[in-house]
Amino acid sequence: MSMILLAEQVLNGLQLGVMLFVMAAGLTLVFGVMGLINLAHGSLFMIGAFAAAAVAGATGSFLLALAAALAASAAVGALVEVVVIRRLYNRDHLDQVLATFALILIFSEGTRWLFGSFPLFLNIPPYLAGPVSLPGGIEYPMYRLTLIAVGLLIALGLFLLISRTRLGIQIRAGENDREMIAALGVDISRLYTIVFAIGAGLAGLAGALVGAIQSVQVGMGEPVLILAFVVIVIGGIGSIKGALIAALLVGLTDTLGGVLLPALFKQFMEASAATSVGSSLASMAIYILMAVVLIWRPTGLFGARG
């Protein structure tokens, strides 16, 4: 295997990882602050992608499409929080799982009803299309490189938001003691709506960004949602830092596993069997990673709560 191929796969892993982080950050924030498990997070990812595809189709502008994705998913997120999610904070996890599963059914079928069953396409804008040459003779798609950069910027922005702003202080205080910050005069239900809308907006943005390199279709959110769950379980629920590290770990494991495992099995098996065994194992690699992390640390790498 050439080093160039390996470097490309590492970059692909990073790209998957940072996008998973953008998705997982909202989930872990919502769980950390409100104690809510939200299965409908994948639907917000899908809504972002559909909003972007619709706006890009109407205006031709990719930036407008991204703005629409962010706005639409944050707005839907805020609406859902006020109408449904708010009633679930004091319920047990089972009720949360079911209610948000019901939301998935409603959102998926609603989107299918609005846009039809055929996938939409969101094109990469011309100024980000084509490959770019990296040091070492690596040709890598400009768009994927941009995704890595945008993802890292979002991560930086989130860290600054949490550690340096007034909202961030309230969020961290809300994670520790919600009665106390309510007593100190913070409007807790408004804070919850804002946190949920931020998470939803991030999911929608991730959907739009990823939507340009895959097809935009109903059900696109759930596979990503489940990967994001794996990420926050590995990272420790509620920890943004854990989510970032775990997201990169999962992204790299998934991408490199798909390349390295079949190659590894070729060392001592015949080629076709090695490919099938290797790719079967690679598809399970991140779940095996998760199981190993949990045997070692049952609350994840950076998790405090059980």
Binding site: H93, V230, V233, S276, S283, Y287, L294, P298, T299, G306
Partner: peptide, 29 residues
């Protein structure tokens, strides 16, 4: 493995194990 954890971790881990077998059957010719 899953019962080492509880609450929301348990929900997500059982979900992930289900997905693991799902992807395994898809890629198992």
């Amino acid at each position: 493995l899953s019962l080492r954890t509880s609450g929301v971790y348990f929900i997500m881990i059982t979900l992930a194990f289900g997905q693991m077998l799902f992807f395994f059957t898809i890629s198992w010719p």
